[in-house]
């Protein structure tokens, strides 16, 4: 009613990719975590199958096999694609990240609006000396996670971010 459809499309601008790739060790880390996950799911399904009554097992069986197949295919494809697609960038004025392997998420937050900077290292991540940095703003929709940076680099980036955002005035809303 009050919406007018556009008649033509001018030159379509797009966003460029952020500058940096994640650490190459992330590839191994993703393979390992995916493998652990597929193994757990597989064991769960096999055990569950034993307890199913026959009438259910007849048509749930193929479904279980499909799920396990999907997990194996994911294990083979996902880490590599994810490695190519995951990128990050912190410049003087903003944090910019890109994540996702089938989908794509590009997130931008100006440093002046950043409220907290956290670093996380899970047990498996520590094996590979990797760390995640999560930057939050005053919006629940706005957290930006820079995944799988080298630990030393992560510390340095965190320190830089903390220094810059410490100068911010007001409550950043």
């Amino acid at each position: 009613m009050t919406v007018v459809q556009p008649t033509r499309h001018a030159a379509e601008p797009t966003l460029r990719e952020p500058a940096h790739r994640v650490n190459p060790r992330a590839l191994k880390y993703w393979v390992i975590t995916d493998a652990i996950w597929s193994f757990v799911v597989g064991v769960g399904l096999v055990v569950g199958y034993q307890f199913l009554p026959d009438s259910w097992a007849r048509w749930l069986g193929p479904l279980f096999i499909l799920i396990m197949l999907y997990n194996v295919v994911t294990l083979a494809l996902e880490p590599l694609i994810r490695y190519r697609r995951t990128r990050w960038e912190v410049t003087g004025e903003r944090v910019f990240s890109q994540t996702g392997w089938l989908s794509r998420d590009q997130r931008i937050a100006p440093l002046s609006r950043v409220q907290t900077v956290d670093t996380q290292r899970g047990p498996v991540m520590r094996l590979f000396r990797l760390a995640n940095i999560t930057v939050t703003t005053a919006s629940a929709a706005g957290p930006i996670t820079l995944t799988c940076l080298d630990t030393d680099l992560a510390d340095q980036v965190t320190a830089d971010l903390a220094r810059v955002t410490g100068q911010t005035r007001g409550d950043a809303t």
């Binding site: 590009q106 005053a138 919006s139 629940a140 706005g142």
Partner: peptide, 30 residues
Amino acid sequence: IIGWVLHQSFFQRRLGLADLTATTAAGNER
């Protein structure tokens, strides 16, 4: 507005579409 999120699902990427989110501290924060 305190940031932007440009999300494209697999199917949206093929059509050149996206879900654009303006993040904010007000209302339901997006």
